[in-house]
C-alpha cells in the first residue's frame, strides 16, 4: 500500500507502528502520539530497534498536528483505551497521563474514542484509511452507522478475534464515494 503519512494515536509500546513500518514501503513518514511521556519514549525505541524511524509526539490525540495534517493522512491507527469504567475515572486518567490512561474508557468504554471519532474525518486523505480497535461492548454497529451518517465514513470489520475475555475487532473506515451506496 502507498502511504506518505502514517499516524498512530496512543502508540504505547510502539509495536503497531513498528510493525507497520516493516510491512509498508519506505516512502512513508511515521508519526505517533501518546499523552504518556514514557509511552512516547518506548515507541521511539521500539522503532529504532526495528530500523523504523518513528517520530513520537507527546500530545492528546492529534492536537498539535491537527491544523497541518488536514486531509493529509493516508493511514491512521488507534487502539484506544476502550475498557468500560465509571466516567470520572476517565477524566482522572486523562489528566494524570499515566498508565490508567491506557485502558480507562468510561461508560461503554467509548468516552475517549468518541473524541477522536468526531475529528478523524478531517485528517484522512482522499483515499485514507482509519483502523480502530474496538470491543464488542463498545457497540460496533452503532459506531459504524454513526460514522456513516455524521461524517460519510463507511466501514468494515476487517478482523475479529477473542483475546482472553475480550472480544476484539478491527474496524476500517474510509471516505464513502459520493453517488455510490
Amino acid at each position: 500500500m502507498n502511504a506518505t503519512i502514517f499516524l498512530e494515536i496512543g502508540s504505547g509500546s510502539g509495536c503497531v507502528s513498528a510493525f507497520a513500518g516493516k510491512i509498508l514501503d519506505t516512502s512513508t513518514l511515521y508519526l505517533t502520539t501518546d499523552i504518556n511521556y514514557r509511552a512516547c519514549n518506548c515507541t521511539r525505541r521500539t522503532g529504532s530497534q526495528n530500523n523504523v524511524t518513528l517520530d513520537a509526539i507527546q500530545t492528546s490525540f492529534t492536537q498539535a498536528l491537527h491544523s497541518r495534517l488536514k486531509n493529509s493522512v493516508d493511514i491512521i491507527c488507534f487502539n484506544p483505551p476502550y475498557v468500560p469504567t465509571v466516567s470520572t475515572e476517565v477524566s482522572e486518567a486523562q489528566d494524570l497521563r499515566g498508565i490508567e490512561g491506557s485502558w480507562a474508557g468510561g461508560s461503554d468504554g467509548m468516552q475517549v474514542t468518541n473524541i477522536f471519532l468526531s475529528v478523524v474525518h478531517e485528517l484522512l486523505s482522499f483515499n485514507g484509511r482509519f483502523y480502530l480497535v474496538a470491543l464488542k461492548e463498545n457497540n460496533i454497529p452503532e459506531i459504524q452507522s454513526r460514522m456513516k451518517t455524521l461524517y460519510q465514513l463507511e466501514s468494515k470489520i476487517v478482523l475479529s478475534r477473542r483475546a482472553g475475555r475480550e472480544h476484539l475487532s478491527i474496524v476500517r473506515f474510509k471516505r464513502a464515494l459520493p453517488g455510490l451506496s
Binding site: L29, L31, R44, D55, I57, A64, L65, H66, S67, R68
Partner: peptide, 14 residues
C-alpha cells in the same frame, strides 16, 4: 527526535 519534517507539522494549539 524532532526532525524538521515533523517540526513543519507542529503548530501551537493553545
Amino acid at each position: 527526535m524532532v526532525r524538521l519534517i515533523t517540526h513543519n507539522l507542529l503548530a501551537c494549539h493553545a
